[in-house]
């Protein structure tokens, strides 16, 4: 039986076991907390943005393999990226995990998250860190609830 086929691919399990860039980032310029009230999962995102560039990024919190891997891969992907590109990426990832648009190659390794779109109850797990990232960038508030 292959349980791990599309949702729990090796890359996701790898990031879930050994999350990259985990911890607090101090000092930081931007910060927000993402909360999934359905399951209690929590992801905090810390950003150091200077001259419109993400110099450093870290996350902390607790969650399932999907949400941890998504946060971990997010930090790798956006480090060193200009803020306007991060915003474009955000929209693409959201479209992919909700199944509104297919995975495209510009997303790089993040395409492994595409499988989640077939599991409606798990979409929020994949998008939690990205919601927190969006909230941190918008500076609208400190806590965002995953929709």
């Amino acid at each position: 039986m292959n349980l791990a086929d599309d949702l729990y691919q090796e890359l996701i399990l790898d990031h879930a076991r050994m999350p990259r860039n985990k911890g607090e980032l101090n000092p930081h310029s931007h910060h927000a907390r993402g909360l999934n009230p359905l399951c209690g999962d929590e992801v905090e995102v810390f950003l150091d943005i200077r001259d419109d560039l993400v110099r450093d990024v870290r996350f902390k919190g607790h969650g399932c393999a999907i949400s941890t891997a998504s946060a971990s891969m997010m930090t790798q992907q956006i480090r060193g990226m200009p803020v306007h590109e991060v915003k474009t990426l955000l929209a693409r990832v959201n479209a992919m995990v909700t199944g509104r648009s297919p995975a495209d190659e510009s997303l790089g390794k993040l395409v492994v998250l595409a499988g989640v779109s077939r599991f409606p109850t798990r979409v929020k797990c994949a998008s939690l860190a990205w919601h927190a990232l969006a909230a941190a960038l918008s500076e609208s508030g400190e806590t965002v609830v995953a929709e």
Binding site: L3, L7, G63, T121, R122
Partner: peptide
């Protein structure tokens, strides 16, 4: 193993 991953599997 997080409970959500377990429940999905």
């Amino acid at each position: 193993v997080h409970p959500h991953d377990l429940a999905t599997l």
